[in-house]
Lab assay of single mutants.
Amino acid sequence: KKIKIKIKVYNPETKEVLELEIEVSEEEAEELAKKLAEELEKKGYKIEEVEI
């Protein structure tokens, strides 16, 4: 079964909002969402919402 992940991120420095969407297997979904959120935060983005 495929799971659709939508991530909306906001960069306070540039006032930019990015929306990302990807489909992955159920097993990958939670781990991938967690890794993406961590990487984006390292780059200065503030995570507003992660929906699985």
Rank of each mutant, 00 (worst) to 15 (best):
K43S: 04
Y10S: 05
V50R: 00
E28H: 14
K4V: 04
K15P: 02
E23T: 07
N11T: 06
A33I: 12
T14L: 04
N11S: 10
L40A: 03
E38D: 08
I3C: 15
K42I: 04
A33V: 12
A37G: 03
P12E: 11
K8Q: 03
I22T: 06
K43E: 04
E21K: 14
I7A: 03
I47P: 02
L18E: 04
S25K: 07
E28K: 14
I7F: 15
I5E: 00
I52D: 01
L20K: 02
K2V: 08
E19G: 09
V24C: 14
E16W: 15
L20H: 07
K43V: 03
I3A: 09
Y45K: 02
I3E: 02
A29F: 03
E51D: 09
I47Q: 00
E48Q: 08
T14C: 07
K1Q: 04
K42T: 03
I5T: 00
I52L: 07
V9F: 13
K4N: 08
E19C: 13
K43N: 03
L20I: 14
E38N: 11
E28D: 13
K46Q: 07
L32H: 06
E31I: 08
K46D: 09
E13I: 13
A37Y: 05
K4A: 05
V17L: 04
E19K: 15
Y10N: 04
V9L: 11
K8A: 03
K42N: 06
K8V: 05
E26L: 05
L32F: 10
Y45D: 02
G44V: 00
E39D: 05
T14I: 04
I3V: 10
K2Q: 10
I7P: 00
I52E: 01
E19D: 07
V50Q: 02
I3S: 14
L40V: 02
L20T: 03
V9T: 05
E27D: 14
S25P: 12
E19W: 11
E41A: 09
E41C: 09
I3F: 15
V50E: 01
Y10C: 05
K35R: 12
N11L: 03
K1T: 06
I22Q: 09
K34L: 07
K4F: 15
Y45T: 02
E19F: 14
V17Y: 11
E49A: 15
V9P: 00
E41G: 08
E13R: 15
K34W: 15
E30M: 08
K4M: 04
K8H: 03
E38S: 09
G44K: 02
E51I: 14
E41Q: 12
E30A: 12
E31T: 14
K2R: 12
E31A: 11
E27G: 13
K15I: 09
L18H: 07
P12M: 15
E38Q: 13
K43W: 11
V17A: 07
V9A: 07
E48W: 13
L18N: 05
E48R: 11
Y10H: 04
K6D: 01
K42G: 07
V24D: 06
E26A: 09
P12C: 15
K34E: 03
K15S: 07
E19S: 12
K46C: 14
L40K: 00
K6L: 05
E31V: 10
E31H: 08
I7Q: 00
L40I: 02
E13Q: 06
E41L: 05
Y45C: 08
E21R: 15
K8G: 02
K4T: 11
A33M: 12
Y45Q: 01
L32M: 05
E26K: 06
E27H: 14
L32D: 04
L18Q: 03
K42C: 14
K2S: 06
E48P: 01
E23F: 14
I5D: 00
A37N: 02
K6V: 04
A33R: 04
I3K: 11
K34C: 09
E30V: 12
L36H: 02
K2L: 15
E28V: 07
A33H: 04
L32E: 08
I47S: 00
I47D: 01
E38F: 13
I3H: 10
V17W: 06
E21W: 13
E26H: 12
E49R: 13
K6I: 04
V50I: 07
K15F: 14
K2N: 06
E21I: 12
E49Y: 14
I52N: 01
K35I: 04
L40M: 03
E27A: 13
N11M: 06
I5L: 14
V24L: 03
E41F: 07
I22E: 08
E49D: 06
A37F: 11
E39V: 07
E19T: 14
E21L: 15
E30I: 07
Y10D: 01
E48F: 12
E31P: 10
T14N: 11
V24G: 07
E16T: 11
K2A: 08
P12D: 06
K34R: 12
V9S: 13
K8F: 06
I47W: 01
E49T: 14
Y10L: 07
E16R: 09
K6Y: 15
L36W: 11
P12T: 13
L40G: 00
K35V: 06
S25L: 13
I22Y: 09
I47F: 02
V9C: 05
T14G: 06
L40T: 00
L36F: 12
A33D: 01
K15C: 11
K46I: 10
K1W: 15
I5W: 06
I47H: 00
E51T: 14
E13T: 11
E31G: 15
L40Y: 09
V24W: 05
A29E: 02
G44H: 01
E28W: 07
E38V: 12
L36C: 05
